Simulated scan of single mutants.
Amino acid sequence: MTNGKKDILIIMGRYLPGYKDGGPVRSIQNLVDYLGEEYNFRILTCDRDHGDTQAYPNIKVNDWNHIGNAQVYYVPPKGFGYKIIRTLTNQADLVYVCGCFNDYAINTLLLKRLGMIKKPVVVAAMGLFSPMEFKLKYRKKKLFTTIFNLTGMFKNIYWSATTQMEVQEINQQIKIRNNYFIAEDLPRKVDNEIIIKPKEVGKLKVVWISRIAPKKNLLGAIKILQHVKSQIEFTIYGPVHVPEYWNMCLEELNKLPANIEWRYEGDVESELVVASLKKHHVFLFPTLGENYGHVIQEALSAGCAAVISDQTPWECFEENGFGHIFSVNEVTKFIEVIENYAEMEQMQYQIVSFKAFNYVKDKSIKASNNTGYRKIFNVFH
């Protein structure tokens, strides 16, 4: 404990200034932004972003760096050795590990099992046990969980889940009893800027932003727009994680009718996401599964109406007047609401935009005041 505050060591694959991993980086950045005055956050992470061959510029590797409200220790790829993990964990009051299938997580769990880490270890599920996510590399993950269950590697640890549903998903693979906490992901902080968006009847600016990978279902969004008759400007943001999938998307993009004008804007740095979204009217996101969906929160905070799938924890959009939630198979409904938004005039749309912004601002205040992370960090003495 330093300066009367608990020292929390977070071990994760990537952190700032990286952004290509999307949700996990955003989750921890939001946690540090909100609670960095209450706890001493130290983060052990890789020195480069997803797919990069070079370390971030202007950082010290194998040493501490002051990043926002946290101290960050960067190591090169495969640098999560037993020695550094053991050293840093024993300097902390609590260890928070993001995920359990990576080298850093496996090494931490092994050290804990062997009694070389004395401090409490909490493993964040990070959505990895959702049916859709667990299917990816299923054999490897099933073998891993089976061996770790048999050898008692999960015996003396705690789990962090975002919902009760995620607890049930973890429990399908790993038997857990009372050794879990529920801490919903904290949203990005929302500014107070009033957002005014020009809007012409019959025209609509639609945006999709995420990692370009099958789970995020860009292909589904494109196929919805193939049937829309209004004048649409469709903008795609995000890193290409699965090149073969992006090629499939390009094939369908080239089939879009003349009334749909599309462009791909590539990666967006995390701090520029909301500013980029403010240029658009509707966030179209028929995702196949989200543990939280930071991009949904970010789109709403940018004053966008949101038209999303029912595979996220978000709900009550239609009742609150700023969006719609459908099954991914309800393509006709997606098409109808896109057409409806296109037909809106400025004032009608602006009311929707204000409702989106105000809803997510209130939600972010409540989430930070009632966060389950404090329970995790304060329960151990």
Rank of each mutant, 00 (worst) to 15 (best):
K199L: 06
G372T: 02
N320C: 01
K203I: 01
E271S: 07
L114N: 10
P286D: 14
T332P: 02
E298T: 05
Y237W: 07
N90A: 05
F101Y: 04
L277F: 00
Y158N: 01
M126R: 01
I351N: 15
W246R: 05
E37I: 06
I222S: 11
I170Q: 14
I209M: 11
N156Q: 04
S327L: 07
N370W: 00
S364T: 08
N370K: 06
S353C: 11
K375W: 00
L150V: 14
V206S: 04
G13W: 05
N370G: 01
V337T: 11
T163D: 13
P131W: 07
Y237Q: 02
A55H: 02
N30P: 06
Q172H: 06
L44H: 03
L219S: 10
F80I: 03
N156M: 00
E319T: 09
N179A: 09
Q168P: 02
P243R: 04
G4L: 06
M165V: 05
F181K: 09
K375M: 09
I196E: 14
K135V: 02
A275E: 09
K140S: 15
Q29P: 00
P187Q: 15
A124N: 15
L219Y: 04
G68Y: 01
Y39L: 02
E269R: 10
V268K: 12
N40A: 10
G99R: 13
N320P: 05
R177P: 12
C316Y: 07
H381S: 11
I212Q: 14
V228S: 06
Y73P: 14
G51C: 04
C249F: 02
K5C: 00
L186A: 12
F80Q: 07
H227V: 03
R14T: 14
T145S: 02
W159T: 02
L136Y: 14
V201N: 06
P313Q: 15
K141L: 01
N192D: 15
I182H: 07
T151N: 10
Q54A: 08
E330R: 09
I351S: 08
N30H: 13
I194G: 03
H50L: 12
T45R: 10
P239H: 06
T287Y: 05
C316K: 10
N65F: 00
T371Y: 14
F234N: 10
S353G: 03
N192Y: 09
H294L: 00
D267L: 09
K112C: 09
K375C: 12
N156W: 00
Q297P: 03
P243E: 04
F322N: 12
Y82G: 09
V206M: 07
G4I: 11
C98S: 03
L9K: 06
E330A: 02
M165E: 15
W314H: 06
Q168G: 06
E345S: 08
G23L: 10
A342R: 09
D7A: 11
P239Y: 07
Q54S: 04
F283M: 09
L111V: 01
